[in-house]
Write a protein that binds this DNA or RNA. Structure first.
Lengths: 384, 384
DNA sequence: TCACTTTCGAAGGAGCGCTTCATTAGTAGC
DNA sequence: GCTACTAATGAAGCGCTCCTTCGAAAGTGA
């Protein structure tokens, strides 16, 4: 109800420009005629719109494709390279960064290891190195950076301030967005990492195109997120998906079934313990299988709660343990069948470790789209 | 990405017509100048748009308001009476119906009692009587009916077929939408009653304007629904909100704490039992208070699950027991404080028994709006 | 080289919204 | 009852955006 802006003639042109951009982003280079047909505009009008878009730097003409009948047609493509986006994943052991064009196509990736207990400044320094590395790898300058999108665990408010972080307690009350903006003068977005992973899976992962899905982050720490109606759900205070905090969900201690299993060799560091159990279970070890069974019993409770509340089309299993999806999925499906009203599809993540970085980039792309295609957006800006 | 329709000149006119309708629906009668200012159009253009809307029957001119300076201004109003909507609530004991104008303003209401065990045809007959009664009361004919929107318990698929109904098992596999359409030849929508109640509370009830909320239906039967991003969440298979099916939520048997309390007199019919307990608790009876405590203990588990998963701004307590919200809310808040990451506001329903009927009407209004204001909608139709 | 196909570019026309300005229908003051 | 003031009205003229139509152009294939 807020968009009470009556349209000028220029508004119509703007609408048609955006439609053209959408058409070009959806398909590869298109001839003028093809563009006109897709947008429903006449050829002469389309030409005028295209000329304007070229002028503004959003679109560029590519040389005609040879070997076609008739007079060669002008072809246009969206200039995805007229700006760049960076996605960052601040994890406990690594800071990952990736640089992409405006279509979200990844052009460079870097990883900076950090110690889990590293102090704040060290972590931020790793972040700066990771991003700078991406820029260097892709020969991009900071000026071409439009948006940096950061994923980290915890609850982050709308302004990018960390409200709470279980993984990195020292981050509490940190103005993360502000700190990043000091390093790189561009737009900075901060989101919870599980939500970004969920977004990635629903955009280019195993749940591509799915509008209602639940993402489970299973690993040493549990997390969850939901894509609802095609958008990641944040919640009023950005605290959605924290089902792990509910004792009755039995999520919080669930990983202990795997960590404390008898098949784990003495002296194994805690971060590797679960891997032994899952591997043994894959080989049919009955003790490990029983531990996995107890783990999935617990996992299924919180999952069923999400499924019953949201009725998603797909549940995606992601996070560190999802490497052992072959071991986890069958028993999880079996438990869910018993509990759910309508059984969703249960699939394993296909993006693996890159999930959060990729999701961060998808989030930046989505943010850009929202700005461009918002019903009350201004005219198309120059791309510089 | 689906709206790849480039705009014609007529498209612009259509946009402006819709903007004008929105402006008129939001405020009461408006003068031409006021309309022009709100929509951002110039006065002459606005005049042309208004003339067209009058022609089509969407808008009508009302006589100028006297007592103003200067030449009296033409005033226009949205003709909410150019069509009518019906909302129906098929409950266990009653079939309620209400008739409204296109603004959702309720013009007539009826109620038809039915026995909880009544067979299918009897229930449908009551539905027909309830709707006919509304039409008679408001002197409306069937031809003026645009939409009938029906709420009932259970899971209903997109086409209006009942998948599952705990309250009325006989309805299973019934093509409810089809049956209603046979009685009244107009558009028929079917939705789950808890979802409609949630919608009503978020549109005109205690959570008016709230974009993320959770609605709890507490009564002899438990139910829940969520409004997410301003729209009621259905779920992929229309089975969202069924948290009661999860044993660990402790919802299914929760009402037994109230029904089985020692303060309930011998021989009380089961539907009245909880009322005694709640009344006694209000008077400070320690036995009743303890029963209420156990009830709220259980209620809080499923509620906390929803809150942790969705992080709503507001939780609304509705359903039969919400009449005793004064008894239930304080202990519920206290339990949630302990469990939730971010405590939502917890409020009591303000719409009471009318909740579902009103929600059904709101649903019909929303459906109409979606059709009118959809980005790929056709030109404005005649209102007949 | 010629027919054929498809696109290009220019010209003319229609629809929509904007600005401007004299006119009109009320109210307020004397 | 007359005059000044106020605010809306209605008509005229302009500019922009899109449309249709048509001859010309630039390729392919025989």
């Amino acid at each position: 109800m807020a968009d009470l802006r009556g349209g000028d003639l220029s508004r119509l042109r703007q609408l048609n420009s955006l439609t053209a951009i959408k058409a070009l982003r959806g398909a590869g280079p298109l001839t003028l005629s093809a563009l006109a047909e897709r947008t429903g505009l006449s050829r002469p009008s389309m030409k005028e719109v295209a000329d304007e878009l070229v002028e503004l730097g959003w679109v560029e003409e590519v040389r005609p494709s040879p070997g076609t009948m008739g007079r060669p047609a002008r072809r246009y493509r969206f200039r995805a390279d007229s700006g760049h986006l960076v996605g960052v994943d601040i994890g406990a052991h690594n800071v990952r960064a990736a640089l992409s064009d405006l279509d979200g196509e990844i052009l460079a990736e870097t990883r900076q290891p950090v110690l889990p207990g590293a102090p704040l400044d060290e972590r931020l320094a790793a972040l700066e190195r990771a991003i700078s590395g991406c820029l260097a790898l892709s020969r991009t300058t900071v000026d071409d950076l439009w948006t940096i999108s950061v994923g980290t665990s915890g609850v982050i408010d709308v302004e990018g301030r960390v409200i709470y972080s279980a993984a990195v307690p020292a981050w509490r009350d940190l103005d993360l967005a502000g700190r990043v903006r000091e390093m790189f003068p561009c737009e900075v977005l901060i989101e919870n990492d599980s939500r970004l992973a969920a977004l990635a899976e629903s955009r280019r992962g195993t749940a591509k195109g799915v509008r209602d899905m639940v993402f489970l982050h299973v690993g040493r720490r549990m997390g969850a997120a939901a894509v609802i109606g095609g958008t990641v759900h944040r919640g009023f205070g950005a605290a959605s998906g924290e089902i792990v905090m509910l004792p009755e969900s039995r999520w919080f201690d669930a990983p202990e079934h795997l960590n404390g299993c008898a098949v784990v060799p003495e002296g194994t560091p805690p971060e590797d313990a679960a891997g032994y159990t899952l591997a043994a279970a894959r080989n049919g070890d009955p003790v490990a299988l029983e531990a996995v069974g107890r783990y999935v019993d617990d996992l299924a409770v919180g999952t069923a709660a999400m499924v019953l509340i949201l009725d998603p089309e797909v549940v995606v299993l992601g996070g560190g343990f999802s490497r052992s999806a072959d071991v986890l999925l069958p028993p999880l499906r079996e438990r869910l069948e018993r509990r759910c009203m309508r059984m969703p599809e249960v699939r394993a993540s296909t993006l693996g470790d890159e999930c959060v970085v990729v999701g961060a980039i998808d989030y930046a792309v989505e943010h850009l789209d929202r700005q461009l295609f918002a019903p009350d957006a201004g005219p198309l800006p120059l791309t510089r």
